[in-house]
């Protein structure tokens, strides 16, 4: 009995790593791109919530969840561009503006999303990879959403793109040393605006995953700080897209500990176990950060390192 409890727990953890980790993956890839350009966007949390609402609303109204995902990305793109453009003005603090964007994005989503709390929208499909097993629990655990695979592919594409394409090199140059980029004739502000906008798009898609797959409904308590944890996650991943994938899975597993324990009947300390991702994030930052030097791999222009 104990052994089966353990295996159920581990299975729930594995399933959770993918299920809970997917939004982390999208948001952290978006943040990674933004930070590679030398800017930090804490507002991805607000974008995530707006994306979740937009995705749900469009899916409900149009009947197509994929249209919802696109719309969520579009909403994220718009908010990301707002951040990119306004932070390009001199003397605007990007960290503070991110906080403002959290407030605005959440307000926007709660305001416009009021009417969509009740009705149920069509959900995103998942791919059943557990057909070989007779156990229904294994089957449900191996129901993996298509967006996860897109996210994994994206991590590899970004990894290659940042290293091997002209675009990637320009972005990294702008992020590492603005003056050199200017000297070569690239306008840093423009590159950063694009990077922040695309980052916003990805965060919006991450939000659509929340409302259209797991947990799979729209309400005002949907996000629990995934957008902000993603910022820490990118630091943990040392600004490498592929590391973002592993980190997102780890954070997903940490976030799944609470529900997994509930699955085997341990109800005690529900809130404490749900706080594990935050503790993990903090622990990771304490271990990886040092006060006297910047982290290896950190973009040189990042205000986080000043």
């Amino acid at each position: 009995m104990v052994e089966s409890d353990l295996s159920i727990f581990l299975l729930a953890l594995l399933a959770g790593a993918i299920r809970v980790g997917t939004p982390f993956l999208f948001v952290s890839l978006g943040e990674c791109l933004t930070e590679k350009g030398g800017r930090i966007n804490l507002g991805l949390e607000g974008i995530l919530v707006t994306g979740a609402m937009t995705g749900y609303a469009v899916s409900y109204l149009s009947g197509s969840p994929w249209l919802g995902v696109l719309a969520a990305g579009g909403a994220g793109l718009c908010l990301g561009l707002v951040h990119g453009v306004i932070c390009s003005l001199p003397r605007v603090n990007d960290i503070a503006f991110g906080i403002a964007l959290i407030l605005f994005g959440t307000g926007l989503a709660f305001f416009l999303g009021k009417d969509f709390i009740q009705p149920s929208a069509p959900m995103l499909p998942s791919i059943p990879l557990g057909g070989w097993s007779d156990d229904t629990r294994v089957r449900s655990a191996l129901n993996v959403n298509v967006l996860f695979f897109i996210g994994v592919a994206l991590a590899f594409v970004l990894h290659w793109g940042l290293r091997g394409t002209r675009w990637g090199l320009v972005l990294r140059l702008v992020g590492d040393h603005e003056d050199s980029a200017q000297a070569l004739g690239y306008r840093a502000a423009g590159v950063r605006i694009v990077a922040t906008g695309v980052g916003g798009f990805l965060a919006g898609v991450g939000g659509a995953y929340l409302s259209l797959y797991y947990p799979g409904s729209w309400n005002e308590g949907l996000s629990s700080g995934q957008g902000l944890m993603a910022v820490a996650l990118v630091i943990f991943a040392r600004w490498q897209p592929i590391n973002c994938l592993w980190a997102a899975l780890l954070f997903g597993a940490a976030g799944a500990v609470g529900p997994a324990l509930q699955a085997i009947g341990i109800g005690w300390g529900y809130y404490l176990f749900n706080a594990i991702p935050y503790v993990l994030t903090l622990a990771v930052m304490v271990i990886t950060c040092r006060p006297d030097r910047t982290l290896s791999g950190a973009p040189g222009e990042l205000s986080l390192n000043r």
Binding site: I86, F97, L103, F104, T106, G107
Partner: peptide
């Protein structure tokens, strides 16, 4: 909430 968000954004911008 949305009014606060707009205000915050504008103050910083």
């Amino acid at each position: 909430l949305i009014l606060q968000g707009m205000l915050f954004i504008n103050l910083l911008a």
